[in-house]
């Protein structure tokens, strides 16, 4: 596995065209020795206070989605109006760029130090981009600093590094369980779709049946 340098990135983008990153606004500013800066998009999903004690993942999916909707709020922001991330706040956002990777390339998303020094964290878990991924990349924005940070669409808040490897047999969209494939806006967590919850529900149901059988006996 090796990391692509700036000329290799450019070759894959513009000559081979198997890597898609669009729009490319200003390569001279965005391209680094082994990275490509990515920009903030216009869509945000903020979390708001609600009366929910917690999100129960084992409940009916309609009720679950309603609970999630109760504590999230979606925004579309103009390029000249900021989304202000206050200290301690968390919000989802996404890249301005639509990105698509071939089966032999993966990418890693990292923050840029200019923003890190203000306390802006752009992801906690969304840093790895699988081969075959297509869509916008989600930012998991947190403000760990002490001052509110105004975030305008178009700002370069992240950078991608690209890694080559052997072509994957199960690129992202071919994987058995892909919850966020093809997204063009920040999607809230779909943790409740994990198959482990089906196993837990199954076991809970089995326990109930065992308990009622014992009572009848």
């Amino acid at each position: 596995m090796s990391i692509l340098n700036e000329r290799e990135i450019l070759r894959r983008l513009l000559i081979d065209r198997d890597v898609v990153v669009t729009p490319i606004v200003d390569l001279a500013t965005q391209l680094g020795p082994t990275s490509l800066d990515v920009r903030l998009g216009t869509r945000f999903q903020a979390q708001k206070r609600s009366a929910l004690p917690y999100i129960e993942p084992l409940q009916d999916e309609t009720a679950l989605r309603a609970d999630i909707a109760a504590y999230t709020q979606d925004y579309v922001v103009l390029p000249t109006d900021p989304y202000v991330l206050h200290p301690g706040d968390f919000a989802l956002a996404c890249t301005l760029e639509f990105i698509r990777l071939p089966a032999d390339l993966s990418a890693r998303l990292e923050g840029r130090s200019s923003w890190g020094r203000l306390g802006l964290q752009i992801h906690s878990t969304a840093g790895f981009i699988d081969p075959g991924f297509a869509g916008v990349i989600t930012f998991e924005l947190s403000n760990l600093g002490k001052v509110p940070i105004p975030l305008y669409p178009g700002l370069r808040i992240g950078q991608l590094c690209f890694y080559t490897g052997q072509p994957s047999a199960i690129p992202y969209r071919s994987k058995k369980l892909t919850k966020y494939a093809g997204q063009i806006a920040p999607m809230g967590s779909a943790f409740y779709l994990d198959p482990e919850y089906k196993a837990i529900r199954h076991e809970q149901q089995a326990e109930k049946e065992r308990t009622s059988d014992a009572i009848l006996d």
Binding site: T22, P23, V25, D26, R39, G41, T42, R43, V76, P79, T80, L96, E97, F98, V136, P153, G154, I184
Partner: peptide, 13 residues
């Protein structure tokens, strides 16, 4: 996505 991205790109371009 096309309209959003084109709009922002236009501002910077």
């Amino acid at each position: 996505q096309s309209i959003e991205a084109a709009y922002v790109q236009q501002v910077f371009s």
